[in-house]
Design a protein around this nucleic acid. Structure first.
Lengths: 126, 126
DNA sequence: CTTACTGTATCGTTGTTACGATACACTACT
DNA sequence: AGTAGTGTATCGTAACAACGATACAGTAAG
């Protein structure tokens, strides 16, 4: 899950890491209450400095995604449960609409989007 | 076309600018031979230092997207269809990733997204 | 209690990003 | 030739990103 870090990308490592985890949480790969890899573990796995992972985790904590507990670990927070279904679908629709509009503005086709969706959400689109 | 630059984003300004132009070229908004805004013009428009625009343009030149001609300007180069396709999928991926990340921030699940996608793109997701 | 694991907090060092300012060199146009 | 517009180059400054190393502090389990 945490294998796609590119040290040569202009986006900072900590931002890449945080982004990956955000996606994992949103996609349900990481469930609320579940623990993330420890700072040192993930750092070793990504061949990155522990401080870089800390920065990613701290950002996620600031956004309410995770909870860092000294001595215990870092845990995925409850975020999904608080929302009502109606609100959720409304927001989701707005989000998708924005994405589609943006794609159109950039000259990307539906096919381009569908391919990307299949890859990232690991679903089959027909 | 060049209005969406975010100084607070972790991705460097020059990378954002270059990215925008790459997409514009890939999408055919900017045609080969066409001139880009001058360094000073674009810098003023984005309220950014000219040197920052220069860096973006130099990167694009290194990648073969544009041609900088002293005294004349910066021009869109002829690019391969292959690369255009690659750029498109890359940017579609980035777009989807942003959407998913935003969904996570809002507490939306993949299911919510998939539903919205089905409705708006008129496809079946399995 | 002890131990082994968590996150937390410092130093310092290096390279990148972005800024401001100034000057130079080339091209196109009148 | 003159001029106004291009890109080019080089100072310096500040903040940030990422690294390495080291120590401290809290938690869970034996």
């Amino acid at each position: 899950m945490f294998d796609q870090i590119d040290p040569r990308s202009p986006t900072p490592l900590y931002a890449q890491i945080a982004g990956r985890i955000r996606v994992a949480v949103a996609a349900g790969e990481l469930r609320p209450g579940e623990s993330l890899p420890s700072v040192r573990q993930l750092a070793a796995r990504l061949r990155v400095n522990p401080a870089t992972v800390v920065q990613a985790y701290r950002d996620l904590e600031g956004e309410g995604f995770v909870d860092m507990r000294q001595g215990a670990g870092t845990f995925v927070r409850e975020v999904l449960a608080e929302r009502r279904a109606g609100e959720r679908s409304k927001h989701a629709a707005a989000l998708v609409q924005r994405m589609v509009a943006e794609a159109g503005r950039l000259g990307l086709s539906t096919k381009d989007l569908v391919q990307a969706i299949e890859q990232q959400l690991e679903v089959k689109v027909a």
